[in-house]
């Protein structure tokens, strides 16, 4: 069973419950999803992480290339994603919604990180005027969650193959 299939198969168990954690393991890769709420169709994801030791010794250039490829694939969220900053010292690439979604009462954006060590993570933030940003749940369908897990998986493979 792939990571995607494994995660999606566990979602029905979280329906009607709050703050659930769903974990799927495939060899050295672990997909972890913090579920805030879930119903038959959609899921509110507080954190989505794909961890793997396969990214332990990668170069920052490889991470940067993989992040650009990931941004091109992830076109199905609420906003397009772009690499924003690359920290060569810590070997981390930060990607965000570009531009963020603007509302009357604030801004919303996704933040994805690809880091040596390693992991691919995704969070959603809300920034209201006059206050610091808050992490909020990203509302996505089950299908989109599965697709994200697949795309994170592909990114790890790309970095390894570089």
């Amino acid at each position: 069973m792939t990571l995607r299939e494994n995660i999606l198969s566990q979602l029905p168990n979280t329906i009607g419950k709050q703050h659930q954690r769903v974990v799927a393991i495939d060899g050295p890769r672990t997909a972890r999803c913090e579920v805030d709420q879930c119903d038959q169709l959609a899921v509110a994801v507080y954190e989505l992480v794909l961890e793997t030791s396969e990214l332990a010794n990668v170069e920052v250039a490889a991470l940067h290339r993989a992040s650009e490829a990931l941004c091109k694939r992830v076109t199905y969220l609420l906003e397009p994603i772009s690499p924003i900053e690359t920290d060569a010292d810590s070997c981390i690439v930060q990607m965000r919604s570009s531009p963020p979604q603007q509302h009357e009462n604030g801004r919303f954006y996704y933040e994805l990180m690809l880091r040596r060590g390693g992991a691919v993570t995704m969070y959603r933030y809300e920034k209201q005027p006059g206050s610091i940003r808050q992490r909020v749940a990203a509302n996505i369908t089950h299908e989109v969650l599965g697709r994200l897990v697949d795309d994170f998986n592909t990114t790890v493979e790309e970095v390894n193959g570089a």
Binding site: R96, P100, R107, I132, R133
Partner: peptide, 10 residues
């Protein structure tokens, strides 16, 4: 910033 993510001032 467009993201309002700076907290250095705090």
């Amino acid at each position: 910033s467009p993201y309002g993510s700076g907290d250095f001032i705090d």
